[in-house]
Every structure is written in structure tokens, then in C-alpha cells.
Amino acid sequence: MSPIIEIKNVTKEFKVLNRREGLRGSLKDLFSRDYRTVRAVDNISMDIEQGEIVGYLGPNGAGKSTTIKMMTGVLEPTSGEILVGGNVPYQNRTKNAQEIGVVFGQRSQLWWALPLVESFRLLKDIYQISDADYDNMLALYQSLVDIEPLLHKPVRQMSLGQRTLSDILAAFLHDPKIVFLDEPTIGLDVSMKSKIRTLIHALNREKKTTVILTTHDMGDVDALCRRIVIIDKGKMLYDNDIEHLKGFFGSYRTLKIRVDGDLKTQADVIQNALRDFSVSADDEWISILVDEEKAKVIDVLGQLQRSFSLRDMQLEEISTEEVIKKIYEEGVQ
């Protein structure tokens, strides 16, 4: 089966007026033809298979939204090819719209004054969803989240969390092949975030819907995505499994221990004992960065236990967040 989304060497450039400062500058700008070209997306290629959940990451202004706008048909690429479900999105915007669902940031696409169920009925007509499919979908929703209290509430009276939930349900309603979620959990509390992650995961599993997720929340990524794509300044930095990404930075784990006596002096003693690893201390913990290719954490711990009386210990995995921060800052070698 061919990929549901095919992106080949896509570049998007914007013309931006070089603005001058001050009132005089603004007046000059009125007649200025002094444009510079900004490359928001620079030669990106990727294939996405049906049913994948892809985390699309990058710092602010990296070109994430621009890529999504091109996939949804709002923007035309300057060069390169995009096929979404076999369509060229920009040329067949309405046809493409039938196959996709979009939740864009915090901008609700529902009818503001209407209760959710009325919005759903309008969407049913607009997307020409059959009665049976519509009922099945609502039943599925009912089994996943408690939608009953939402259905009869006007969207304008909903909390941000309820509104986001509603928007996500609305995006999946016509059983699209692909759903684009742009920062779906932004500004939500922990329990709502987890509810929304569970929902997205369940819908992806049930309906085999491809999900493209942009987010700054590594919790979303860890909970949902097997594959991540990272872009920065329009260029693709990384496209692979999330596991691979972690392995990529060596198999480091941080062992933290607490011992009797002054931590700083003890840390020096430990450093002398463990020459392979870097040891540091703060007010509470002595941290040992263990490279598991050289020695297993459990062996290091055993060795320490023979010489010191350990009062407490902690083990920290290197987090996705740290890895990605490292990629933003240093790039992939």
C-alpha cells in the first residue's frame, strides 16, 4: 500500500517586506519594493503510512504550521510535491477536506453559539455522513469519553478543556483518513491532557486514522508517538522512531544517590572510585552519569553499596525533552 501522505522536496517561500524603523521608515515602506525571501520550509521529504501517529516537532517558527497548511491545502508549496490520500491538496482543497480533520491550536471550528450536538448534525450534513456511520461514531465516542454532558452545552459556555475535546471529536466525526492536531493539549490541566491523549490513542487504534501531531508537550509525544519528525528553521533534522532517538545519544542513565556525610567530599571519593563516569553533587543528591555500554547501572550500584552506606537512590532516564533540546541546540551529528 502506498503511503497516505507523500511529501517530496517541498519548499515554501514567503516574500516579506523589509520594514524600516520609525514613522519616516513606515512612510517609505508604503512605496517600497524591497522584499526579501524567507524560506519557511526548506526541501522537506517524508512518507507517512496509514494509521501512524507522527509527532511533528520543532521550536516556534520552525515551519510546522506552514507544513500543515500545505498538507491541508491552505497554502501552495513554492516547489516540490505533496500528495495527501492521492490528492494534491492545494488543487483539490474541498476534496481533500473531505478526507482530513483538523484541530488548529485553540481556534475552535465549532459553531460558537450552538450546543455540540447541533454542530455535529451540521457536520453530518456538510460531510454527508450516513445515519448509520454517524450513530456508530457517537456510540464509539460515548464508550471512550462521557460526552453526554457536553452534547447539550453551547460551545461558548464550555471550558477550554471541554472545547478542545469537542473539537477533536468533531475532527474525527466524518471518519477522516488523516487528522491534523496542532497543539491539542496546550493550556490544559494534567487530567484533561491525559484524557485527550487516551482519546486520540483510542481513535487512532479503532479507526486506523493517521494522526499528525504538532506539540511542545513531550508528554504528548511520549504517550502517543512512535515516530517523530523534527524540523528547525524549515529544515528537517530528524525523522525516525522515538526509541532510536534515545539510543542515538548513547545509553546514558543518571544514577542519583544519597549517602551519609558531606555530599561534596563523598562525591570526590566516588569519582576516584569510578573513573569512567562523571560524578557531581548538589545539596541533595550525588549524580553519576552512567554509560550503560561500559557498565550496567545495577553493577555500579552494587559496587557503591560495598563501600558506602546508601540512604536513598533514584534512577533517571534521559528524557525525550532533553534529547530534543539537545537536537535543537546542537543538531544531529
Binding site: K69, T94, I100, F104, R107, Q109, I126
Partner: peptide, 21 residues
């Protein structure tokens, strides 16, 4: 405000959808 983008995601005529609201 950028909210216009929400009208671009529906499989119906954009002008119609916008004015119908």
C-alpha cells in the same frame, strides 16, 4: 486574527460557508 483559516478546512464552497454563518 487568523481565525479565517477555520473556513478553509470544510469540504464545501468557501464563500458559501463563510457567508452562511
Amino acid at each position: 486574527s487568523g481565525d479565517f483559516i477555520k473556513y478553509c478546512f470544510r469540504p464545501i464552497n468557501l464563500f458559501f460557508y463563510y457567508q452562511s454563518e
